[in-house]
Design a protein around this nucleic acid. Structure first.
Lengths: 215, 215
DNA sequence: TTTCATATCCCCCTTTTATGGTATTGATAG
DNA sequence: CTATCAATACCATAAAAGGGGGATATGAAA
């Protein structure tokens, strides 16, 4: 970034707390590479404002009167996929984080971390990173800790193989051909699988297999 | 952390590059609150070493001769869920990151960020955070983004409702009863759904619905 | 107005699944 | 050696699902 004088980073702020908003402006204006192109106490016109200002980075509070920050992100993302959006919030609970990230936010900073990390975070989103307060990152990672295939139903390897094939949508006939065994054998396995899963139809079995990641 | 003299943070290092390993030790020993309880050039005995050293934080290189860092994490996690593990790596591709995080790593630092961020990262994992290089965080978030139900097959609302019910394992009969419509109507809807999804059986439909999150 | 998409219902016939059996083999645990 | 289990295979019957029709009603769009 050697040319910040001629191409400053344009920043747009939505934050309903006047003191914090002012503070953010002060903090960012200390940096000559940043240019604040707007600051607003509510997000009602977020879409239009972003269209007019064409910011590089949006700082978006989550909890605002009128429409909240997550909804604002959603609206912005309907027409703009490139502007980087960093959420600023006091919430570190699950729902707010995921709502925001799924709406299309690129970063998620807790307000208590703003003073240390905001400038760094802005640089990071511009480089394609996703700055997050570490406690937020932990939440996100926990979400990823997908349950490994449990075998609580004591399916044999062969049974799991058949359930896996069934769950791909294969018919008994096809499963038999795939595995090189007879149609009747497939049926016998299927019967035992249904017994073990406590189900009585293909649909229930597939649903259970996919939802509980049995295969 | 006012009592670091009496309770130093015990750190264990696995890193096959001798220079980097030495560098890490030097860097961390500058801090009196850190105590390096071991440093190893390979992870073959990782399990036993961790059991003996009882570290607070493990720094684990991914690419090592013998067993790699991800496998080492897996082994450690078999008996120890509380020790914080930070991966150190040059890789920022998808598979390595997810493999490591799913194996149970708590943080993921790129080696090019080590000098800036290692000390901070160690503090962060101890506080329950998940320090990640921002580009890693972006990868993780992108993984989360894929959740939106697509309607590329142009299913009507009623059709989606029926597919949703079918995907729970319900029979045609039950679906009809649930929705208060006739069995034949359910069949008509199902036929159209199969047409639109280009499938020919319940199994394929459910598989497609659940995998592509159509419902 | 006519067309189109959607939702509803019915019939006939075929194919696939579901449920209940029985039976043989090979491996393994006691 | 025997009991058990997993995997294999078959039969009969019943239930469910699939594929082809056709039909009516409604509201929105062309």
């Amino acid at each position: 970034m050697s040319n910040h004088e001629i191409m400053p980073v344009k920043i747009l702020i939505f934050e309903d707390n006047n003191n914090l908003r002012e503070g953010l402006c002060q903090l960012l204006m200390l940096r000559e590479e940043f240019q604040i192109v707007g600051n607003f106490g509510e997000a009602r016109q977020a879409k239009e404002i972003v269209m007019n200002c064409r910011p590089d980075v949006v700082l978006m509070d989550i909890d605002m009167p009128g429409i909240n920050g997550v909804e604002a992100v959603r609206q912005i993302r309907q027409f703009d996929l490139t502007t980087q959006i960093i959420m600023l919030t006091v919430f570190d609970d699950n729902n707010h984080v995921f709502d925001a990230l799924m709406a299309g936010a690129n970063g998620y900073l807790l307000k208590r971390n703003v003073s240390d990390r905001l400038v760094l975070a802005i640089q990071e989103v511009l480089e394609g990173g996703a700055p997050m307060s570490p406690s937020i990152a932990r939440l996100v990672i926990n979400q990823l800790h997908v349950e490994k295939p449990t075998n609580q139903y004591m399916l044999s390897e062969r049974e799991k193989e058949i359930l896996r094939s069934l769950s791909k949508g294969n018919s008994f006939k096809l499963i038999a051909a795939d595995l090189g065994i007879s149609f009747e054998t497939v049926r016998t396995h299927i019967k035992r699988i249904y017994d073990k899963l406590h189900v009585h139809s293909q649909g229930e079995a597939i649903s259970k297999a996919l939802h509980e990641k049995l295969v």
